[in-house]
């Protein structure tokens, strides 16, 4: 009996299904779990549309930066307010810099968006890079034996 179950479980295509079912059950139990938002947030979100047409960096203008570790705050301020020359060039010409394609994650706005979170921006772009490497390798070698 147990042997039959093990044999049934040994199919590779079964694991994503089992995993998804487990996840669904856990999420159903999660409905009974109290989920709330603490008001003392380290990364506060500005009110919707409160920055539109007032600052070119809307909706990502983080004028006040709170640091997790206050002893590193002086260095953090120098980096967080930094914009690349290209970013400054675009920012001076349009009020919609924050919503243009160049400021999406991976674009040039990343400096102000993510630098307080340090390594995150490096990791996100390297995940994307690795995914592209795998895809291009498979694509270029698809006819090779």
């Amino acid at each position: 009996m147990i042997g039959k179950i093990w044999n049934y479980l040994s199919k590779p295509e079964l694991v994503p299904r089992l995993f998804a079912i487990t996840l669904a059950i856990v999420f159903i139990f999660g409905l009974f779990w109290p989920i709330y938002k603490d008001n003392n947030q380290l990364y506060p979100k500005p009110e919707y549309h409160s920055q539109a047409l007032k600052t070119p960096l809307a909706p990502y203008d983080r004028s006040i930066v709170k640091a997790q570790y206050p002893q590193y705050l002086p260095d953090l301020g120098k980096i967080t307010s930094y914009l690349t020359p290209i970013a400054i060039f675009i920012k001076d010409r349009t009020l919609f810099f924050g919503t243009t394609i160049v400021s999406t994650p991976g674009g040039i706005l990343d400096e102000i968006l993510y630098y307080t979170r340090g390594m995150d921006t490096v990791l996100e772009s390297s995940i994307l890079l690795v995914a592209f490497i795998i895809f291009t390798w498979l694509y270029w070698n698809r006819e090779r034996d």
């Binding site: 979170r117 340090g118 390594m119 995150d120 990791l123 996100e124 690795v130 995914a131």
Partner: peptide, 14 residues
């Protein structure tokens, strides 16, 4: 950092 660790996990997975 919780989120940074999650990103590292994703990088290892891929």
């Amino acid at each position: 950092d919780i989120f940074d660790f999650a990103l590292f996990l994703t990088l290892v997975g891929i």
